[in-house]
Simulated scan of single mutants.
Amino acid sequence: MLYVIAVLMGLLTIVVLLVRWRWFSPIALVYFIILSIVLGILEDSKWSFIVIVRYYVYLFGSTFAILMPFFLLFLAYLMLSRIDHDRQISFLRIIFNIFISLTFIGIVIYTAWVVIEKNTYLARFLSVYTLTSIYLIINFLLFVIINLVLCFYRPLYKDYQAIIILGARLSADGKISKVLRKRLELGTRVYLKATKKPIVIVTGGQSQADFPSEAQVMADYLYQKGVSKKDIIQENQAHSTRENLKFVRMMFKNNEEVTNSLIITSHFHLLRTYFYAWMMDFQLNIVGVAGSVSHVVFATLREFIAFFVLTKELNYLFIIGFLIRGIIQVLDIYR
């Protein structure tokens, strides 16, 4: 079944690329194609190495399975709260959110009732959630690996009409953080090496009310490092990756400058940037800069959660599929 899903999503990816359908992100579809294949190989392969990996993955999955009911209830809460707070959400999205939320809640209640009321072993309860726990573990590992692979694509050695540097939160004293400085340093190097100087677009709103916008601080830094003030354009309203690219696209709606552009972000942030760059009709010339090890660990986990939510429809359908499969397996074993 997992291989069938991979084939269907592969066909959808081809269609999306041919018709340039901006509602679907090819990078997300490819991500889930690879995820489906990896899960299928992990489940079916008889190769000794895969068998050993499968043993340890199941071991870790069963360890974290006890936390899955709480995770599912948290996801249900997030989906229901979004209906209440986001007034622009479509009717179909409302129905989807309600359906998935009630499914999560129903499965948690059912498994808890079976364990408590029927006086069965806790192992039955954990078995239902082990496959879902494994799905999240493999999902996270794949997220890390694909981000690392994307780091090797470095489209720096050509002249661009624009360099777009995505903002990041300022430090506690309102100055440039280490993460943001890395992005600006790379943008400065690309600008100074260009034979025909591009415009440099810095994007980011205010992190706190008392601070200047991220774009303003970034522009000041670039000017001090040798970037001409006339070549710096500020977008100082955005507060998210989506808004970064959306507002830049709105500024140059009828201009091809941002089409032939280089987008600079961080290593851990590449997948989400690719996702939104496709939706906003940018060329996928995106490069990530490295950060400190201590920050990257936290940032990678945060970015995984953000990407998980960004692709939540597919994630939720996978999770429900594994939950139902876990219930069926448990019923067959204990029948």
Rank of each mutant, 00 (worst) to 15 (best):
R22C: 12
D332C: 13
K158D: 05
L75D: 06
R82H: 13
D220S: 08
F304L: 08
R302L: 07
Q208T: 10
V19P: 00
R124V: 13
A28F: 04
G106L: 04
N315S: 15
F268S: 07
Y135Q: 06
K253A: 15
Q208N: 12
S101A: 15
I137W: 08
V248I: 11
N139C: 12
S25I: 12
L8D: 11
I50A: 05
M68E: 04
L2E: 08
V227K: 00
Y55R: 13
T130W: 04
F152W: 03
R82V: 09
I52W: 13
R169S: 03
Y316P: 01
E235Q: 03
V51N: 06
G61M: 00
L284Q: 12
T241S: 03
L67E: 00
E257G: 05
I116M: 11
F71R: 00
M1V: 12
T188C: 03
V149E: 05
L166T: 02
I264M: 10
K246P: 07
W278L: 03
R124D: 14
W113N: 11
A290S: 14
A112K: 11
E303H: 06
T203K: 03
T111S: 12
A277S: 12
I41S: 06
G204A: 09
V4Y: 11
S127C: 05
E214T: 10
F96C: 06
H239M: 12
Y153D: 09
V190K: 01
D281R: 15
L72G: 04
P212M: 01
A162N: 04
I116Y: 15
D173G: 03
L122G: 07
S266H: 05
V296C: 04
V309K: 14
K46T: 13
G205I: 06
F104N: 01
S177M: 06
P69L: 00
I134N: 02
P198Y: 07
Y223L: 08
F64W: 07
